[in-house]
Amino acid sequence: MSVRRLAKIQPESFAFSEETRATADWWISKYPEGRLASAVIPILWLAQKQEGWVSEPAIRAVAELLGMPVIRVFEVATFYTMFMLEPVGTKALIQVCGTTPCRLRGAGDIMEVCKTKIGLKDHLSADGNFTWQEVECLGACANAPMAQINDYYFEDLTADSMAQIIDDFAAGKTPKPGSYAGRHSSEPEGGPLTLTDPALYDGSLAKPVILPNQPAPEPVEGGAA
């Protein structure tokens, strides 16, 4: 990570779309009066969802919406690396995990693919469609190597599958997220090795007991209260 600055070229203005505004109001309604600043991260995130990145006018708009000093919003936006302060690819923002487990399982090859297909790390591609970044652990080590593309995890990647995914995005398709090694989630390859019998976990073997704190049945509307 390096020093994070606002982008040199900034849009003239920022306005919340109606949809964003409605979601923002829902977030704001979760916090009591006078504590609106608590909603700054979700609202910044919404602004980023709307525009793809957080621009300077967007920071001001968020500050105005929440009644915060604009520097406080700026602090949050520069602190969290999930807020993009520069424009990112319109089709995909690829965040390749480069932490040890992924690295050991071949994240380097995946980055190499990104480099040849998209260009330099942290730079918008020439056509403006892609940006790729190296990020720290995204917590899917069991499915290493992996990358987060836009909102989804793409796991068990290989150089070939990564190249295919990028091509699909470029062609306007929506590649399927999840494991590219045919796994459902993070179970062992080739199917589960434990808990193979459903009776072990569906409760059928358990002794029927009555819990002391078992919730009472729901009171009926209009009943004695």
Partner: peptide
């Protein structure tokens, strides 16, 4: 405000 974090933290006024 204190912007950025870690080694890159900086004290500044807005813009």
């Amino acid at each position: 405000g204190l912007i950025g974090r870690g080694e890159d933290a900086e004290i500044t006024t807005y813009l």
